[in-house]
Design a protein around this nucleic acid. Structure first.
Length: 128
DNA sequence: CCCCTGACGGTCG
DNA sequence: CCGACCGCCAGGG
């Protein structure tokens, strides 16, 4: 799998996150069969335009926090607004970071159906 | 080829 | 809950 295919799979997986739900970079990595590549999932999302048809805002870190893009950037704030716009509650920590409650909004299926087919995978939801 | 850099993750105290 | 640490891995210099 080259990087182009990796990106395609990431986008494919992210598109399947339901409206009003969130998952983590690491879980997206697992769903596309590359569990150790969580950092690269983030890298793939960084290419997207803010008005992309891909719901990039539904991906946060494994702790439920919205990843900072570094001081002086507003990406995290934009993500917060995008999530609140679709009904997701975002808590502000004392360090001025944003976090989402996985118990309420988390979406972590064991597997999904990828576009490339070869689908021996089946969809299994599990809420909490 | 070595070194540093991340929209990351898990463990431990 | 929080910080300190360590592991991970493709890209870029």
């Amino acid at each position: 799998m080259d990087s182009a295919e990796f990106h395609a799979n990431v986008y494919d997986a992210v598109r399947q996150i339901p409206h009003g739900r969130v998952t983590s970079y690491g879980h997206i990595a697992k769903l596309i069969g590359m569990p150790r590549h969580s950092r690269h999932v983030g890298q793939a999302l960084k290419f997207l335009d803010v008005n992309s048809d891909i719901p990039w805002q539904r991906v946060v870190s494994s702790s439920g926090k919205i990843s900072s893009r570094g001081p002086g950037t507003n990406g995290a704030q934009r993500q917060r607004e995008a999530l609140e716009d679709e009904g997701v509650e975002v808590r502000v920590t004392r360090e001025n970071e944003f976090s989402v409650n996985f118990a309420t909004y988390g979406w972590f299926p064991d597997s999904i159906e990828l576009e490339g087919g070869g689908g021996e995978e089946e969809v299994q939801e599990e809420d909490q």
